[in-house]
């Protein structure tokens, strides 16, 4: 890590994408899957409501997308800031 400001920017960007990811993580599991389920109860899917689908399957699919997106983003951020492994 050459200079201090690049290091700070790198870490700030990491914390930003973690925060965004965890907000989505929260809304898709605890939100739509549990607490906000009544809000989206009007949307039907296969004989039940969307909240049930989020609790049993949707949240898991979102988790996978979040991790792959994070890996892709961070691995390119590493290169941008010159902190990737050679």
């Amino acid at each position: 890590m050459a200079d201090k400001s690049s290091a700070n920017a790198y870490w700030a960007a990491n914390k930003r994408i973690i925060t965004i990811s965890l907000v989505i993580w929260f809304f898709c599991s605890f939100g739509f899957g549990i607490i906000l389920r009544p809000l989206i109860a009007g949307i039907g899917i296969g004989g039940t409501d969307l909240g049930f689908w989020f609790a049993q399957q949707g949240s898991i699919l979102v988790f996978i997308l979040l991790i792959f997106n994070y890996a892709r983003y961070m691995n390119s951020l590493d290169r941008e800031h010159g902190v990737d492994e050679q």
């Binding site: 599991s29 609790a55 949240s59 898991i60 988790f63 991790i67 994070y70």
Partner: peptide
């Protein structure tokens, strides 16, 4: 439905671990 906790809980932890 209530035991969907196991499905979300035992997978959602990987998001925390990965990040």
């Amino acid at each position: 439905y209530t035991n969907s906790s196991f499905l979300m809980g035992w997978t959602g932890g990987y998001v925390l671990m990965a990040m």
